[in-house]
């Protein structure tokens, strides 16, 4: 079957060249009004609504295509500002894509203005609760006080206080995680133009033993990126023994900071 559906990667407001090493991906740059859209023609066998949704249950297929989606946008992003589309955005016809561009042109221009000269950085913070628990007396005044009382008490009282401490430690670890998460968020926020909080993923999704306590994205001016990286490095080193693991990735296409508003009379 001929490839006739249009898979959309991203939009730019300046002409899009296709790097030599990605030509094999059948990419095509289409121009609509003042915008340039990077697309690929895809087959109904793979991307018709039914086939596409069936493929979504195949994680290997999703992984290959999601990685390709972000790689293509990432390569274009290296030389121009782009508005990225969600993975798997497909138009049936060129006319439909043209209508979208026309209807949303004002909003697209506003978004370009908002993201130009900025980069998206993602920060995830994990807590190793065992490591945190090991040094709870250093991080929690309440736990340290209770420990002192235990040491000074008779064996019977110490036993009861010990049980009390187990509950206290749990609550204190929750509080410390919250405080550290907020601290990291505030530090990175102070260097950013915009922020976005994403869902926290449980262990079954991360495949990690530690617990995700912060999943945030920051839109950072390019001139502030060195400070952002420096802050990341210093926080990571400072807290690595406290049981907090910080991971930062970027620059990403500005997926989290696009807000498209339709013009009132469209559709």
């Amino acid at each position: 079957m001929e490839n006739e559906l249009i898979y959309v990667y991203c939009i730019s407001d300046s002409p899009l060249g296709i790097a030599r090493n990605v030509k094999s991906k059948d990419l095509k740059s289409l121009k609509f009004d003042d915008f340039y859209v990077m697309v690929k023609y895809v087959s109904e066998n793979e991307f018709s609504e039914n086939n596409f949704k069936r493929n979504l249950s195949d994680i290997q297929w999703v992984e290959t295509n999601a990685r390709e989606h972000i790689s293509v946008i990432g390569m274009i992003m290296e030389y121009t500002t782009v508005i990225p589309f969600k993975f798997g955005t497909i138009f049936n016809t060129k006319a439909g894509l043209q209508k979208f561009i026309t209807d949303y042109s004002v909003s697209l221009t506003e978004n370009f203005h908002h993201i130009r000269g900025k980069e998206e950085w993602a920060v995830k913070v994990y807590c190793d609760r065992k490591a945190l628990c090991d040094q709870i007396d250093k991080l929690s005044e309440k736990a340290a006080d209770l420990e002192k009382q235990i040491m000074e008490s008779s064996p019977g009282k110490a036993f009861l206080l010990g049980r009390k401490k187990i509950d206290l430690i749990d609550n204190e670890m929750d509080r410390i995680c919250k405080d550290f998460g907020q601290k990291y968020f505030d530090e990175f926020k102070s260097l950013s133009e915009s922020t976005s909080l994403n869902n926290l993923f449980p262990k079954e999704y991360t495949g990690r033993e530690d617990i995700m306590i912060l999943n945030a994205t920051f839109l950072v001016s390019k001139d502030k990126v060195p400070d952002f990286k420096w802050t990341f490095d210093s926080l990571r080193k400072k807290d690595e023994n406290s049981g907090f693991i910080i991971e930062a990735t970027g620059p990403w296409p500005p997926f989290s900071f696009i807000s498209i508003k339709e013009k009132p009379d469209a559709r």
Partner: peptide
């Protein structure tokens, strides 16, 4: 893959097209 999906399926990106996740 989790990080990649966290980006490309993010709630903030454009929700349009004739077929979209």
């Amino acid at each position: 893959i989790l990080e990649v999906l966290d980006r490309v399926l993010n709630k903030g990106v454009i929700l349009t097209g004739d077929i979209v996740i």
